[in-house]
Amino acid sequence: MFPVLLGTGKRVFPSGVPGEQKLVVRESEAYGNGVVKVIYDVVR
């Protein structure tokens, strides 16, 4: 997996703060070439 975070505005993950973020899968899709797209929402 190669996660990519996209967007602008307020940071989702504070810089310099260790720890895990709670995420929930919003959408996923598998393609014939083996790529899997997974979209997560941050649990606040």
Rank of each mutant, 00 (worst) to 15 (best):
M1N: 05
M1P: 06
M1S: 10
F2T: 13
F2K: 12
P3A: 08
P3E: 04
V4L: 11
V4G: 02
V4P: 00
V4R: 11
V4Y: 08
L5N: 04
L5E: 12
L5V: 12
L5W: 05
L5G: 01
L6P: 00
G7L: 07
G7W: 03
G7K: 01
T8F: 12
T8A: 13
T8S: 13
G9F: 04
G9T: 02
G9L: 04
K10G: 03
K10H: 06
R11A: 14
R11L: 12
F13I: 14
F13G: 01
F13A: 12
P14Q: 05
P14N: 06
S15I: 03
S15R: 04
S15W: 01
S15K: 05
G16S: 12
V17L: 14
V17S: 14
V17N: 12
P18F: 08
P18H: 03
P18D: 12
P18E: 13
G19H: 14
E20P: 00
E20K: 11
E20I: 06
Q21G: 15
Q21V: 15
K22R: 12
K22L: 09
K22V: 01
K22S: 09
K22D: 02
K22N: 05
L23T: 00
V24H: 11
V24A: 15
V24F: 02
R26Y: 05
R26G: 03
R26F: 02
R26N: 11
S28N: 06
S28G: 02
S28T: 04
S28V: 00
S28H: 10
E29D: 03
A30I: 07
Y31K: 14
Y31T: 01
Y31W: 11
Y31P: 00
G32D: 14
G32S: 13
N33G: 07
N33I: 06
N33T: 09
V36K: 11
V36Y: 02
K37E: 10
V38L: 08
V38N: 01
V38T: 13
V38F: 04
I39E: 11
I39G: 02
Y40K: 08
Y40W: 13
Y40T: 05
V42C: 03
V42Q: 13
V43P: 00
R44M: 08
R44I: 02
R44L: 08
R44Y: 02
